[in-house]
Design a protein around this nucleic acid. Structure first.
Lengths: 155, 155
DNA sequence: TTGAATTCTTAACCTAAATCAATATGCAAT
DNA sequence: ATTGCATATTGATTTAGGTTAAGAATTCAA
């Protein structure tokens, strides 16, 4: 359990690493993301102040996700087994977020996904680029741009 | 922590309920699913022998998922807070499954999703209908039928 | 401050999968 | 066995979103 300072753009953890930690963000903004076979980035999670971010692969399996900083960030690195006993309720909350995300990805259109994002991360919209948001939603930046334009009257 | 017998088709838990439990399957097959605004079913998880199934919404929030039996099932109902301390490693495993599912939903085509399913649930394919599998993959039964046909040579 | 580099928007076109519809197959209950 | 129902397959058509490309707007580094 030690404090870490990360500069914007720095990579905290890479896909394929085994010694994966859990990071608790005190200030700033981290994200986790995967890169698929075609080299495309998919943002898995944003972690602003007070959120916890981690790769959740089994402990003996190389991690699937990269974690890096979208802003200069102060955070705390915790061992995964410590995390389990330290903050069990936060863990349940993370499960809830993931569950909503799966349901959303299976049933929601582009615009519905965007609205879901606004609800999950009300304070992040101003801090990240459209490109990042699109990557989180699982659509292209072009599609996001279109969809926002079309919905101007409707919300 | 009590034993429960569920007949095929019986609903163990409904969307909107608050007293949500965690179920550990001893034999048979359970599933959890949501129903969206258009009345469409989306299977969230299959739980065959030895799996654990639950709605992961926050405890003070009505559950999002239905849970029912696809086969006659023997299982065990556990309180969510008990579950947390009883089997912390299984919980981490469930997180890993969810994480893979999100990544899959964001980046994979229909055929890739099907192959992913075969890997996650090697023994379930024979036990559930194409319709159920399609619902789990987030595609229509028609799309699944076509995609399997097209890939006959290729795998 | 200026140039280079991302990012954003818009448009035209393309494609994977959804929808709609018809037929076929399998299964359960009497 | 026969009826009825859900499931599966196949085909025709539509559509949401992807791809490509080009210009405008922002950001960033020197």
């Amino acid at each position: 359990m030690k404090k870490i300072s990360v500069k914007k753009g720095e990579i905290l953890q890479r896909k394929g690493e085994l010694n994966s930690k859990v990071y608790k963000v005190h200030s700033g903004l981290l994200r986790s993301y995967s890169i698929d076979e075609q080299g495309k980035e998919h943002i898995f999670l944003f972690a602003p102040e007070d959120w916890i971010i981690a790769d959740n692969s089994a402990k003996d399996v190389p991690s699937e996700l990269y974690i890096d900083a979208l802003e200069d960030t102060e955070c705390e690195a915790i061992n995964r087994d410590e995390d389990l006993v330290l903050e069990p309720l936060k863990l349940l909350k993370r499960m809830a977020v993931l569950q909503n995300r799966v349901i959303m990805l299976m049933s929601a259109s582009a615009i519905e996904r965007y609205n879901h994002f606004l609800k999950t991360y009300p304070h992040i919209v101003q801090r990240v680029s459209q490109k990042m948001i699109a990557s989180y939603l699982g659509i292209t930046p072009e599609a996001l741009s279109r969809v926002k334009k079309e919905s101007h009257g409707k919300r």
